[in-house]
Each structure stands twice: as structure tokens, then as C-alpha cells.
């Protein structure tokens, strides 16, 4: 049995994940946008990689499975990349769209 697949190892990974989780919750409390983004999404990526590698055992799986999954993630990025000039932008070359922000009414009832 390798050290990679021992219960002890799993518990260790779990502990790191929990610490990272706490960091990601605490980070935004500083109120700095960059820190928020870094702690929130940077840590999410780190956590996801750790789960994938150590719990799903991607680290000892055949390499092409990783490529496959990464490829699928790239597909999502490709989609977002091709779509964002239209959907993400409020205006572009020779066009503009009205961006309707919905008013925040906290006392609005739960009915239409």
C-alpha cells in the first residue's frame, strides 16, 4: 500500500481542505476585492485540484483521463470566450444594449 492511499493521508488532505475553506471564508472579510477574488476562486481551484488528485486518485490514474477532464473545462472556457463579447459586454462595435438592473426591494413578498 502506497502512502498516497492510506487513511492517514486522506485525513491529512481533508484537514488541509478544511483550513483552506476557513481561509476562503475569512478572506473576503478583509473587504479588499483582489484578496476576495484570490481567496475565493484561487482557493476553490486549489481545493478542487486536491480533491481530484487525492480523493478521485487522478494522480495515479492514466494521464489521458486528466487531459479529458481538462479538455472539457477548456470547452467551457471556449464557450465563454466566444460568447462574452456579446453577453458580457454592455456595448460593442456599432451596438449597445440596455442593461436592466432589477431593483432590490427587500420587503417584496414571495409572490408575483
Amino acid at each position: 500500500m502506497s502512502a498516497e492511499t492510506s487513511p492517514k493521508h486522506y485525513v491529512k488532505i481533508w484537514a488541509i481542505l478544511v483550513v483552506l475553506l476557513i481561509l476562503s471564508v475569512l478572506g473576503p472579510m478583509l473587504g479588499i476585492k483582489l484578496v476576495t477574488l484570490l481567496t475565493a476562486f484561487g482557493i476553490a481551484i486549489v481545493k478542487a485540484t486536491m480533491v481530484a488528485n487525492h480523493f478521485m486518485h487522478l494522480n495515479i490514474e492514466k494521464k489521458y483521463i486528466s487531459y479529458l477532464l481538462i479538455g472539457m473545462v477548456l470547452m467551457v472556457f471556449l464557450f465563454v470566450g466566444g460568447t462574452s463579447p456579446d453577453v458580457l459586454m454592455p456595448e460593442g462595435q456599432h451596438w449597445e444594449k440596455q442593461v436592466i438592473e432589477q431593483p432590490v426591494e427587500l420587503d417584496h413578498g414571495g409572490h408575483e
Binding site: 464557450f79 466566444g82 460568447t83 456579446d86 453577453v87 444594449k97 440596455q98 442593461v99 436592466i100 438592473e101 432589477q102
Partner: peptide, 17 residues
């Protein structure tokens, strides 16, 4: 629905992707 902040073009991208 653009009147609610949505974007009809997004569907076109989703569909043709």
C-alpha cells in the same frame, strides 16, 4: 428576456455551440 436583464443572444450561443 432583455426586459428582465437577460440576453436573447446567449441562447443563440448556447444553441449553436
Amino acid at each position: 428576456n432583455p426586459n428582465k436583464g437577460g440576453d436573447p443572444i446567449l441562447w443563440q450561443h448556447l444553441f449553436w455551440f
